[in-house]
Simulated assay, not measured.
Amino acid sequence: MTSRSTDVPQPFGVGEPATDEDLRVLRAQLGRPARGVLGIAARCVCGRPTVVVTAPRLPDGTPFPTFYYLTHPAATAAMSALEATQVMPELSALLEDPEVAADYRSAHGRYLADREAVDVVPEIVGFSAGGMPSRVKCLHALAAHSLAAGPGVNPIGDLALERSTWSPSRCQCVVIDDGE
């Protein structure tokens, strides 16, 4: 993917279309039906969904700013475990480095561009996810963005993935019977 300029983020898109099997797996992963699924932005090495692309406005009309949603149970557990280590102040302190802060602001801009390429929802304009662009709030959202956009786009999401016990290169899926 090439950017039109260094100042204008190029939208990532909505990923691959979700299949009926993907929706079944998502239901099992989340423990409920997935809402507003536009596509699958990242997959486990075994092919199961890891990050879903969610509509900026859910079918019931609710604004939904989390465009990239981490669904893989092992990945979400690893991000929760990492957050429990009180790493957030350390990662937030990295934003004092002007280069890291600029990269993080750029990630925020890219996230917004990706979501607004699908729909502009007035209630969430300017809000991305995970605390971007000025703080670190949710590693789940930041890791999802890194997995969807690829390495080098979101510096804090990349660090969260590097420091977690979960790896996108190793299947840690558990087959869950969703009752269907």
Rank of each mutant, 00 (worst) to 15 (best):
R105Q: 12
P56H: 10
M79C: 06
T85M: 04
E162W: 03
L142C: 05
T62M: 13
L147F: 04
G150E: 11
L91N: 01
Q86A: 10
F67S: 00
P9Y: 00
W166Y: 10
R57F: 09
L58Y: 00
A84R: 12
T6S: 10
P168L: 02
T62G: 11
G47H: 05
D20T: 06
V25N: 02
H108F: 05
A28S: 14
G130M: 02
C44F: 08
L82Q: 08
A107N: 03
L38T: 02
T71C: 11
G131K: 01
R57D: 02
R115C: 07
S80W: 15
R24V: 01
Q86H: 11
Y111G: 06
G130S: 10
E162F: 01
R4F: 15
E90V: 13
Y111I: 02
R48Y: 03
A160R: 09
G47L: 12
G157P: 15
A18K: 00
A74W: 04
D103P: 01
I176N: 15
L70E: 07
G39V: 03
G47T: 13
P98A: 12
G31K: 06
R43D: 01
T165M: 02
G150C: 10
G126M: 09
A141W: 05
V45W: 05
V136L: 05
L26M: 07
L161V: 12
L82Y: 01
E16T: 06
R24Y: 02
L91W: 06
H145M: 12
P151D: 14
T6L: 14
V136P: 05
P98Y: 12
L139A: 10
L139T: 03
K137P: 11
L26V: 01
T85N: 01
V121S: 08
T165C: 13
S3R: 14
P56Y: 10
A143F: 04
L30Q: 07
D177A: 07
F67T: 00
Y104M: 05
E16V: 05
E99Q: 14
A28H: 00
E83V: 14
T165K: 12
T50N: 04
A101V: 07
M79R: 08
E21I: 13
R163S: 08
A149P: 03
A141T: 02
A75N: 09
G150W: 03
K137D: 09
P73K: 12
T19R: 11
D103V: 04
D22H: 04
M1E: 15
V118D: 09
P59Q: 04
G36R: 11
L58R: 09
A81W: 08
V100T: 12
T2Q: 15
I156G: 06
C173A: 10
H108R: 00
T76D: 07
A78E: 12
C44S: 14
G150L: 09
V14N: 06
T2R: 13
P133C: 06
V53T: 01
A74Y: 08
D97P: 11
Q86Y: 03
A78T: 00
A148H: 00
P59M: 02
I176L: 15
E116Y: 10
C46N: 05
D158L: 04
D97Y: 15
A81F: 08
P49E: 13
F12I: 04
